[in-house]
Amino acid sequence: MLVPGSVLVTAAGIAAGPVPIPLSSLTRILGHELGFGPAELGAELESHRNIVMSTRIPRVLLGFAVGAGLALAGCVVQVLVRNILAEPYLLGISSGATAGAAASILFGYGSALGVWGLTGSAFAGAIAAIVLVLAVSGIGGTANSTRLILAGIAVSFMLAALTNFMVFASQGQSGARSVLFWMLGSLQQARWEQLAPTWLTVVLAGAVFWLWSRRLDALALGDDASRSLGIDAPAFRRLAFLLVAFLVAVVVSVSGSIGFVGLVVPHLARRAVGAVHRLVLPVSALMGGSLLVAADLVARTAFAPRELPLGILTALLGTPLLLILVHRFNRRRNET
């Protein structure tokens, strides 16, 4: 059900927009592109083809990968710190990646490496953020949830301030605008050449996480239980955090920091299929991808012709759930 759903959402994401494109035209355009449709499209179809090929398809495919990546990162981070309130955005990983990306844009270092220079810089920022958060909250084995979230929020603020300061110090107008784009999160600048690296990273990271399914299940039981099952929990946690940080850095470097997908989606996925990661991970990836494509659709069309930055929309949708979870969390802790 989830797979056809994802395909449907993706098709809708391509078809809808300021210029709506009927599904019949869409199939003819795709047929033409793949070489088994009509050879000549005619003027109207040709202009649609331009829209579909140059903006809609890269945007939707990138959005799917970004949503899937954020959802996967959320799933894994929640197990690593054993707290369902954790997600890349709240733990400061996204802000770290944003700060890294901003530094690269504004001061141009790593620019010799092209897209990967930006990603590398974002990765360094993400790693720095997560190391700082974990060091401050003193998580060796079992994390104190409150401390962890507080540390994450403090580090997020700090890195956001750092990013703002870099914008302030850099003077350049265009740089400042593209950094703002990173901070708000958007798929507006999706390009074809971003698709391969992003999809590759998301699929590979997802595959590794999936092979780690039982390790993640075991880690959810506690460090002692994981050790009993043959897993060196601290070492595994470090390795997994590294992969999560890389995944988030790649995602953030193409879409900016989009929050709460990593919080909402794993929660919904666990409600649907239980907590076992062999199921939760693929389900989260599909849900995350579909959700982000759908959210982007709303962001593009709700205030057309103006476009709502995607990060604002996901935050508006995600924070109420966070509040509910925090409330429930408190009540449960008070009972025990």
Partner: peptide, 25 residues
Amino acid sequence: AVVTQQQGGDIDLTVQEMVLLGRSP
């Protein structure tokens, strides 16, 4: 095999899922 009093976190497995993890090594 080790059984300690350490509690897991928020992510809750069912009894069967947890017991099956005994086979994971």
